[in-house]
Amino acid sequence: MKRLAPYWIIALLTACPAAYAAEPPTPELFAAMIMTKQQQASAVPTSSGVLWRAPKGAWSRLGPEIQLVSSATVDPHDPAHIFLACGNGIVRSRDGGETWRMVTGWREADVLQIVVDPQSRENVYAATAWGVLVSHDGGESWRDASEGLPAERLAKGIAIDPRNPARLLLATTTGLFESTNCGAVWRRVDGFPEVAALRICQSETDLDRWLVGTEGRGVWRSRDNGHTWSPCAPALAQANVYAVAVAPHDADLLAAGGWTTGVWFSRDGGDKWQPAATALPSANITAMTFDPVHRHRLWASTFEEGTFYTEDFGATWHSAHLDGAYVFDLGFLDLKR
């Protein structure tokens, strides 16, 4: 099994020497969410935005309180450079969250995920409900980059191949698409079904391994860097899988969860899957991530019934609160604080 250092470390060391000379950033858990449980007779959730969790467990706001923020991303070259993927467009901070600016205009909307090229900070990509946006000036300006996508181009997620950052994989509601030229043209990934791909992630230690959660077709994996795909987790074969995760320290440790499924683990790279030994208060899983610091720690968000973590594959769960939240994305940001 190939094991490589996490690509953000490689990028940091090679592309941005000033960054590691300073105090290294610490990965902080974030949740992009809206508070919906108490939302009655109203179109407006009671709270929304991105929260980050301090080591002692308190949640604090990251960035402005905007109604629909789907995700957050930190530039691996500069931890003070933060992007928020918003309904309004893309909101960016260049000073670690002190000040923020909308860097998109009226034509850009419903941004769902943002990724930064690990080799060149100039290249930033965004998956949106209306296709793909690309910036070649570090997020200052954006243009549409949806050529080759069908009319239905709702892109839920986007990922960069760190060994070849010109290559991108796009999870859309009509399947998986690939670009090998920085988003200039997209083509459908053969062998992946024409179903909604809801979440895509890649192992940080074995870059050939990818995992995708789908709508109605369960979990799919690739072991050859996204060139061929096959279904795994037969018990989830017909599920809507909103969350998939690969442990950053162990490419064999996977997790998946979706609507009514609860959390499932695989400890052998996806050959065999088992449900968490203890059920969460809700079996509706909306987001998940493994912890980069605490080995084997998995964080999982349920629909409106709280966010939890486990360090023993679900034998016990610890509350991380966020009761009532609908968490769209859960992950770690290398914030400089």
Partner: peptide
Amino acid sequence: DWDTVTDLIAR
């Protein structure tokens, strides 16, 4: 999402 959309509309 597919599983939450009707519920959230009805809020």
